[in-house]
């Protein structure tokens, strides 16, 4: 059951497709730390090729999680960084993997503590199913269905030429299938 589900080529192709459906004169991309930020960086590169003006920000939802009482803080908190005014802007929230929808709920909560955007859309690279909240992405790169006790990970490393190599894999959760997306 463990192993790679999507490989570099498929992921690159879907990133391109995602970017094409997001084009606009100005795109405000907010990545959810950490995987979401990597995906947002990749989308930014592709959107720029399409001639869009891209503004980037990042959210770390560690302090907004709904399970702080039950699980420890993630050992690395990256901090949020929204260097632009989000009021009345059309914001694209970007994450790597969507599962229960709780991360997105937390991210929306945090986003609205920065101001009142005109709209928020959601782009995710992988939808693995298993939603527990009424949240649905506007743009999905790849989808498949994973059992609840599996963790789906996005990995990105640079090869010798400095080019990003992506892969998406799954493994059995170390914790007994709890009801959450993998940590941000």
């Amino acid at each position: 059951m463990n192993g790679i589900i999507f490989e570099n080529k498929q992921i690159r192709k879907s990133l391109k497709k995602m970017a094409q459906s997001m084009t606009d004169t100005s795109v405000y991309l907010v990545g959810i730390q950490r995987g979401g930020s990597q995906v947002a960086n990749a989308l930014q590169k592709r959107l720029k090729k399409e001639g869009c003006n891209v503004v980037r920000g990042n959210l770390d939802i560690s302090f907004y999680r709904d399970d702080l009482d039950r699980s420890p803080l993630h050992p690395v908190v990256h901090g949020s960084d929204l260097p632009f005014d989000i009021n009345d802007r059309h914001i694209w929230l970007v994450d790597d993997v969507i599962f229960s929808g709780r991360t997105i709920r937390a991210a929306l909560g945090e986003l609205f503590d920065y101001g009142r955007p005109a709209s928020v859309s959601l782009a995710v690279l992988v939808d693995r199913g298993g939603r527990q909240l009424p949240i649905q992405p506007n743009v999905i790169g790849l989808s498949f269905s994973a059992p609840a006790d599996h963790v789906v990970d996005l990995t990105m490393c640079k090869n010798a030429a400095g080019k990003a190599v992506w892969s998406i894999s799954r493994r059995l959760s170390e914790r007994k299938a709890c009801s959450e997306e993998h940590l941000p």
């Binding site: 560690s62 702080l68 908190v77 901090g79 960084d81 609205f112 503590d113 920065y114």
Partner: peptide, 23 residues
């Protein structure tokens, strides 16, 4: 070092306009 890192990431909450998190 862990507390300093956590403190550093809290700075942002103190600098934005709505200074509140539900933690």
């Amino acid at each position: 070092m862990w507390l300093l890192q956590l403190g550093e990431s809290m700075l942002d909450i103190n600098r934005r306009s709505i200074k509140k998190a539900p933690t």
